[in-house]
Write a protein that binds this DNA or RNA. Structure first.
Length: 215
DNA sequence: CCGCCGATCCTCT
DNA sequence: GAGGATCGGCGGG
């Protein structure tokens, strides 16, 4: 079966538009016996320099430089000292916007995915969260992530391998739900998180909580 | 099922 | 120094 690859034009639009239309599309990594394909079921939009929750809010740095680059680039962001999250740069051109890939359904390479997520009991939980999704795709630890990007995580080399899906909102096949983003303290009530209504692979909602650290 | 908590480390203040 | 775009384990109801 041949799949239509999403190109730069698809990604070079407002992040909330891309985030919504990305639902149901298929992200593929690996080759040969390593192939894993995920149908995206949950995304979040980050609106460039005007969005206080965006990593580009305080201007360009070495770490967020890729967000100022061309739309379509997939990059990994290291969070909480141990997890990686996959994002795709979006437009409009000149604005450092991005879409965070929050969850998906593994539709190819189930055994590879299970091996990368040994603690999981139900397949619907394999990629039901941004760091879980990244792990399933092979970017769950530092070595793998570095290998995937040739040592420079902040400048992904190419347009992400994302293909149009048949079970997405574009085909009218699913209902899209919208709500607040997860895990962000700033602008936390903005409805910029999109997911496929009723899909079991969507992550459980965890409202942002501020916690005291140990003394 | 729900809520709390520790782990872990890099970046920017 | 502080504080994350998180996850999984544990304890209680």
């Amino acid at each position: 079966m041949s799949r239509t690859r999403l190109g730069r034009d698809f990604f070079a639009r407002e992040p909330h538009v891309v985030a919504r239309e990305l639902l149901g599309s298929i992200l593929v990594t690996g080759d040969g016996s390593d192939v894993v394909a995920v149908r995206l079921t949950e995304t979040e939009a980050y609106h460039g320099a005007t969005d206080p929750a965006s990593h580009a809010y305080r201007g360009r740095t070495a770490r967020n430089a890729v967000m100022f680059d061309e739309a379509g680039h997939l990059y990994l962001y290291f969070v909480y000292g141990m997890h990686w999250c996959a994002n795709i740069v979006t437009g409009p051109p000149g604005e450092p916007s991005a879409v965070l890939l929050r969850a998906g359904e593994v539709i190819e390479g189930l055994n590879v995915a299970r091996a990368r997520r040994p603690a999981v009991h139900r397949d619907s939980q394999l990629a039901s969260g941004p760091a879980r999704l990244a792990a399933v795709l092979g970017w769950g630890d530092r070595d793998r992530a570095l290998r995937a990007y040739g040592g420079d995580l902040c400048s992904a080399p190419a347009v992400a391998e994302v293909f149009a899906g048949e079970r997405g909102p574009a085909a009218g096949a699913v209902a899209v739900a919208v709500g607040p983003r997860v895990g962000v303290a700033a602008a936390k009530d903005e409805p910029l998180r999109f997911w496929i209504e009723g899909d079991p692979t969507v992550s459980a909602y965890r409202p942002q909580v501020r916690r005291n650290r140990r003394p």
